[in-house]
Each structure stands twice: as C-alpha cells, then as structure tokens.
Design a binder for these strands. Structure first.
Length: 639
RNA sequence: GCCGCUGUGGCUUAGCUUGGUAAAGCGGCUGAUUCGUAAUCAGCAGAUCAUGGGUUCGAAUCCCAUCAGCGGCUCCA
C-alpha cells in the first residue's frame, strides 16, 4: 500500500464522473469537506491482496502515529491510484478502504472519498516539516511470492477532476515568466535567435538549441566518464548516494590545484576567504522563506528533533555573516569567498552523469556587497573579465559559449553596458530577456561548456542580486550615517571544480577525435615528468635528475618492464614530458625528452627542461606529487 | 520522479536467445630477462555471475523486486 499523508487546513472534493470501477454511493458522499484534517491519499496495491486485513491494520497504525504527531483529530481517506503502478483489484481496494474507515472511526472523525470516481478536490497543506509524509507499507513476509502479480490489471482508477489544486509554495514558484531569445553580436546588433546566421558559430548553435528547443539527441556515454576512471581521477561511489564521487590521488591533486588557483585569483582582487557551515536549520525564518521555493531539491538531515538541510551554495552562511557585520561605505565593494566543499543539490537521477552534474560538488562561491546599481555594474564588468581570465588559465580559453540573461527594465536602462560585455568576449552571445523579474537577480551571465553530446553546462557565472540584502537584513552605513541595503553580486569564477575537470576531459577527447593528442594543461598534470631508466643501474641517476627539478612533479618508472611498455604506459597517462635515461644520458648529461603536446623528441639538459616547465606553469599553483615517486611502489586504484 | 537498456575475477569482455563443470585478454603474484622510445617469455592465483526472492531435479541463463550505471522524458536558484 502507498500512503501520502498531508496535514491540511482543509480538504474538499466533489465527484464529477464515474469510472468503470466506481463504487455505488449515496448522494451524501458525492461531495465532502473537512477542516484541519490529516488527509491520507491511499493506493491499495497487489501486494495487499495476500492479506487485506493486515494491510488495514498497518495503515491504521501508520495514520494513528502521524495523527498523533501532528495532533489531528480528523482523518480524510482519499483513494488515489496514481501513487502506485501495481494496483490491487478494485474490489479489494474498496474493501480495504471501508475497513480502514471503520477501524479509525473509533478514535477519529473519519470521512472517506468514494472509490472509482473522477473528483475535483482542493487541499491546503499546512507546510510544516511533518505536514507531508509518504509511506510504503508491505504486508506479511512473503511479499512478492504470488505468481499473479504481473497479471494485475490496472483498472482501479480513481482520478482527480480538472479543478484539482494543491496550494503550496513550491508549486507557485513553478510559474514561468516569458523568455525572449536573441543573439547579440559584438557589433551591437540584436537579432531574434531564429534570424541569426549560425553558419560560422556552430557551438553557439548547439548551445541555443540546448537552451531553446532542448534538442537532446544522444546515443553514447559521455566520453569523460571512461577517462575520469582510466586516468584515476574520480569514480562513482556505490556506498554513497548517487552523484557523490570518490576522488583518487591524481584527481584530488587536480582538484586542490584548481581550488587553490581560484582562491588565489579572487584574493588578489581583494576577496577574503571564509568558512561557513554545510547545514542549516530548516525552520530558520530567513532561510525557510528561501527554501520553500524549491523543497524537493535539498538533502535534509534529521538530528535529535530538529531538521536541517545541506547548503546548495555559500549564500546562506555568507549572508548571515554579512548581516551581523558592521560595514561602512568605505569597505565597499566587500568581497567574501568560500570554496564550498561541498555544496549539495539533490539533482534528479537522470541528470547525474560522471562529473558533469553532481549531488555533492566543490564550488567557489564569492559574494560582493556593492553600493548602488552603478557600482554593482562596474564590479559585474570586472568579474566578467576575471571569469574569462580564469577559464583561460584553467585551460578552457574560449571553449565556451556565453549567455546573458536580464529583465527588460534592466536592458532599457543599461543597453550600452550589455553591448560592451559582448564586445569584450568578441563573439555573438545568447540573450535571454524576461518581461519581468521572477528570480532574485536582474541580470546574470554564464560561460557554458558545450560537450560532444550537445549538453550545455554552466561554468563561470555572475548575478546581480536585488532581493537578498532585504531578506537577510544586510546593511552598510553611508556617508551621511544612513543604513543602506547593498546590492549583492554572486560570483562563481570557475563554476564547480569537478565540472572544470569534466570540461577539460571532454575537450581532450574532442582533440583526440580530431586526430590530435589529448592532454591536460601542464600545471594540472598529476605527473609532469616521467623518468624511464633503461636498466636498474640507471635508477640512481634518475633519482638525481628528479632531485634537480624543484617545483616540478617528477616520478620514476622503475618497474621491471621493457622500455617500450613503460613508454606506452606514460602515454596512456597523458604525461606531458617523458624522459628515457640510459648509458648515453648518464655519460653526456643530456636528456632524451618526448614532448607529448608537440609529439616531438628533443635533447636537452636537465636545467633546460626544468626551466621549460617552470616557465610553462609560471603563475599557476604548484603542489608536490600525490603518489610514491617510484612506480613500483604504487598501488592501482582502477583497472 | 517516469520510460527503456545494462550489470559475469581488479579492468575490458564471451557465455544468456535454446537452463546442465563459468571462458579469454589486460592487470596482479612468482620465476627468467636488465632491455634505447606505444604491449618480453613462462607459470600461478583470482568469480557467492549486482543484491534479495521465485520457478526448476538443476539457474550466469527464465520470472519478480531492489540497488547501481547508462540513455530518453521531466526539471534546473
């Protein structure tokens, strides 16, 4: 049996039309209503046929328990076929419902909506944490042993009429404002999307298709999934919830480098780093309002008698911190950043693929408090440019399509500013124009990576928030001593770190499809130099070379394998510099180096090679190798 | 969340239609080999065939459920 229990201010229904399985009812049952009732939507299932009385008993227990918790004295039993795809025979269902009504009526005021009728109904859910509960009840122990289950015919259709309405905040926010789609060119020409000539902008075309027509023709596993495993970067973790990944040492190193890079970058531009909790009180007045809009998207945690949700960004913690701060106009723009490890979003199952979209992910989240809109716009521009630089440094220079989304009012006031943004990236961008504001921001942009499967994933983004300063009570003091609400910018300079890795892998795959050599940026390569000593007697010399390479990740393949095989292994790991060391090198002090990116072999001294790599990775973070230097000592994480 | 496909040693896969001792390559271990740029040779170990139930004398194979992955739909602050 499936139960959906709603603690409601009121529930009312009216029968509209009978279905073939309708029970005969008296006119008094044709309509009904009940105030302050626990409404139990019920689907009796084929499993219950084995022991209907037990099903009644279990359901009664469950309803009593919940009614006790929410202190409800009235119960509405409401047959609802849509809760299950394994419905019982109608006769059994009617029998169970009637017995349930009888059982409960000793303690509660009970009403029962008729079975097998199309009904219009209205319900108002109280909305407190216990007000919505669902339960799956299974009778007996030998569940599933009846052989006739598959033969059950779904004819027990009770349905709701067209007047059905569930009043809830979540649903209200589903309303969509109208979007208008355009392309804005660097010359300042604004065209409806369908009028634009995409022939020289195929990636933009794929992006626009994804956004507007939602074309999703796909027939393959995303290429990065195999790569993330084979390169020992990351993998699924069946012991956790889906979308929560494990990261192997190489992947962890890459993540740390990216994280460090982003934090360094924003710090240089004046951001201060903070740390805030990962979970928040579900019933905190400020947070609740915000949360109510998307109740199904959170992970929730019950602890003692309180409910918490896991953050989906750093907004909560930072805004709560901002509210308690004393801020002067002299402090603006005031930037705070956190590398959220993790942010949590319960994305739908079908969306979770590899590293593209996760339920637990690492995201830099920066918030900037600005004064009036003009200073917010100046800051927005700065951060837009910074995001371009960040993606370029990460290795995704111009590998993205731009979307800028704003309200019509904002556009009217700031047309020139938006054209300037487009000029800055110097390529046409997708414009989404809303007639009215229905999010907390008036403008946002994203840089989107478009993969081989034509899926778009947002990387960098900045938004101008005109709502949350008010909601959270954030203020600064202006020159005249007045308390003023700031305008707030939300910025994730790189987007989710895992997603950057996804984009780098997808890009590398694209390169190899096109006949090139797939690579990672040298500053991110888990091993930057692989030394291959030809015989055991060359290992000592190789160790000396490794010691002479400070600030570079070097390892030594000292395994008892042929040179050919070790060369191949280095290639499969995408190691940018591979050095073979034999008698010749030991004698003349020159190294034989294969440069992966250029597919060439060069002869160079160790200091020269060192200088080559340090200049190639200049300005980017360095961390030491995250595995034993000797390959013979390494365990295998995958494969 | 819904619909469909898939799940076999650490990895990649054969076997499943038509039920009857689970097969191979890679990887691992042991030994030989000390090697000059994309897979050295030989031997050994390693699998409750995703999990739970059912049908059957007998299930990797047929049926049901669950879990996970993938694809589609839906959704996306």
């Amino acid at each position: 049996m499936q139960l959906l229990l709603i603690h409601s201010d009121y529930i009312e229904y009216e029968t509209k039309k009978r279905t073939p399985v309708a029970e005969e009812i008296e006119s008094s049952m044709k309509r009904g209503c009940m105030e302050d009732a626990l409404t139990a939507f019920i689907a009796v299932e084929s499993y219950d046929e084995a022991d209907p009385d037990d099903a009644v008993k279990n359901a009664a227990t469950e309803i009593r328990k919940t009614a006790g918790q929410v202190k409800a004295g009235r119960v509405m039993l409401y047959p609802y076929a849509h809760l299950s795809s394994e419905l019982s025979k109608p006769a059994v269902a009617v029998d169970v419902l009637k017995k349930l009504e009888e059982t409960l009526s000793s303690d509660y005021e009970v009403k029962r909506a008729p079975f097998g009728w199309y009904k219009a109904f209205k319900i108002s859910c109280k909305g407190h944490p216990l007000s919505e509960l669902s339960r799956t009840l299974r009778t007996g122990k030998d569940v599933g042993s009846e052989g006739n289950k598959k033969d059950v015919v779904k004819e027990g259709v009770e349905d709701v009429g067209k007047g059905a309405e569930v009043v809830s905040e979540a649903l209200k926010s589903e309303e969509k404002a109208v979007s208008h789609w355009h392309i804005l060119t660097p010359d300042g020409e604004l065209l409806p999307a369908e009028a634009f000539d995409f022939s020289e902008h195929t990636d933009l075309k794929r992006f626009v298709d994804y956004e507007i027509s939602k074309s999703r023709a796909v027939d393959r596993i995303p290429p990065h999934v195999e790569l993330m495993k084979r390169l020992e970067i990351a993998d699924y973790e069946p012991g956790s919830d889906s979308g929560n990944m494990r990261f192997y040492p190489k992947g962890t190193l890459m993540k740390r480098l990216l994280e460090e890079y982003v934090i360094d970058t924003v710090s240089k531009r004046g951001a201060v780093e903070v740390e805030t909790p990962v979970m928040y009180d579900m019933n905190h007045p400020t947070l609740k309002k915000y949360l109510d809009r998307f109740p199904a998207r959170q992970y929730s945690i019950e602890s003692d008698k309180r409910s918490f949700f896991l953050r989906f960004a750093a907004c909560f913690g930072q805004f709560l911190m901002n509210r308690d701060m004393t801020i002067s106009h002299r402090n603006l723009p005031l930037k705070m950043v956190e590398m959220t490890r993790y942010s949590f979003r319960r994305e739908q199952h079908g969306e979770l693929v590899g590293l593209r979209r996760l339920r637990a992910f690492t995201m830099p989240d920066m918030h900037t408090l600005c004064g009036a809109m003009d200073s917010a716009i100046t800051e927005f521009k700065n951060q837009y440019v910074m995001c371009m630089d960040v993606l370029a440094d990460i290795g995704l220079d111009r590998d993205y399509e731009v979307a800028i989304r704003f309200t019509r009012d904002f556009y009217t006031d700031n047309q020139e500013f938006i054209t300037e943004l487009v000029k800055t990236v110097d390529k046409p961008v997708l414009i989404e124009l809303w007639d009215s504001r229905f999010f907390y921001f008036v403008i946002k942009f994203e840089f989107n990576y478009i993969d081989t499967m034509n899926k778009a994933s947002a990387l960098s983004t900045v938004q101008i928030d005109v709502e949350n300063a008010e909601r959270y009570g954030i203020e600064y003091t202006n020159k005249n001593g007045d308390q003023i609400r700031p305008t707030i910018l939300h910025c994730s300079p790189s987007g989710a770190i895992e997603r950057c890795i996804y984009a780098l892998l997808e890009k590398a795959h694209l390169t190899s499809e096109a006949g090139g050599v797939p690579t990672l940026p040298t500053w991110l390569a888990p091993t930057q130099i692989r030394l291959i000593p030809i015989a055991d007697r060359h290992i000592k010399y190789a160790e000396g070379i490794a010691r002479a390479m400070p600030g570079v990740r070097v390892d030594i393949d000292n395994r008892d394998e042929t040179v050919g095989k070790r060369i191949r292994a280095a290639g499969r790991e995408w190691i940018p510099y591979v050095v073979v060391i034999g008698d010749k090198e030991v004698e003349n002090g020159v190294l034989s180096i294969t440069i992966r990116a250029e597919s060439v072999k060069v002869e160079e001294t160790a200091p020269k090679l060192h200088e080559r790599i340090t200049s190639e990775t200049a300005g980017m973070p360095y961390r030491q190798i995250n595995l034993p230097m000797m390959l013979s000592q390494r365990a295998i994480f995958f494969g």
